[in-house]
Amino acid sequence: MRSHRTTTRCALAVAAVATLIALPARAAEEKTVYRCPGNPVLYTDTLSAKEARDKGCKTLEGAPITVVQGLRPAKGSSSSAAAGKSGENRVDPNEQRARDSDARRILEAELKKEEDQLAELQKAYNNGEPERQGDEKNYQKYVDRVAEMKANILRKESDIAALRRELAKLQ
């Protein structure tokens, strides 16, 4: 009788040890899958927990993930189609010059309009000390309006710089 109990106990002990050894191995096999924001949404198991947290990724637990292979385009068909279309879509050089001239004229008009608006904003801003308005008895309202004016001036300056860059590309 003792030998049967001993054998059973030994068998249970061996099973328990085997289970304890298998748990870390199974945990290593089951990697944590993260869903990271962006376009396209990224599902990955290659990030560490810190990297996932920094990127704003969320863990997926118990959700099955299906990977669908995309269709590969047939070789040769897209390159020959693109080569045929490029000749058909060519624009006459005179027409292209006219388009470029129109674009330059539009950009110059936009630049002049933005510069005029910037001059008006700077005049009203009065070097950070604009006139107080009647509804600004509360000093914080005045400070908020001055900050908004400064932000508008900075935005206009940025817009003007962008327009000048675009004009430089056309020159």
Rank of each mutant, 00 (worst) to 15 (best):
Q69W: 06
S80P: 00
P37F: 04
G134E: 15
T66E: 12
R165S: 15
Q171W: 05
G56L: 05
G76L: 04
D144E: 15
G87I: 13
R72G: 09
R5W: 11
E29N: 11
S79L: 10
H4D: 14
T32Y: 01
E88L: 13
K50E: 14
E110N: 09
I153A: 05
Q117I: 08
R53A: 14
V67R: 09
M1W: 10
A124E: 14
Q69V: 10
R5S: 08
K58T: 13
A25L: 15
A124L: 15
V17L: 13
E148C: 02
E136S: 01
K55D: 01
L107Y: 07
E166W: 01
A25K: 09
D100M: 12
A81P: 00
N126W: 00
A103K: 15
D144I: 07
A83P: 01
G38P: 04
T44Q: 02
D135I: 02
S80T: 14
E129L: 12
S86P: 03
A74M: 11
P37K: 06
R164V: 02
R53Q: 14
H4E: 15
N152D: 07
S86F: 07
A22H: 06
N126P: 06
R105V: 04
T8C: 10
P64I: 03
R72D: 13
T19Q: 12
Y142T: 03
D92H: 03
A103G: 00
G128W: 00
A22M: 07
L60C: 04
R90W: 06
V143A: 05
S79E: 14
Q133E: 11
A18P: 08
A147F: 04
T44A: 01
H4A: 13
K113L: 11
A98S: 08
C36R: 04
V68K: 08
G128V: 00
R104V: 06
N89C: 11
R132A: 02
A119S: 09
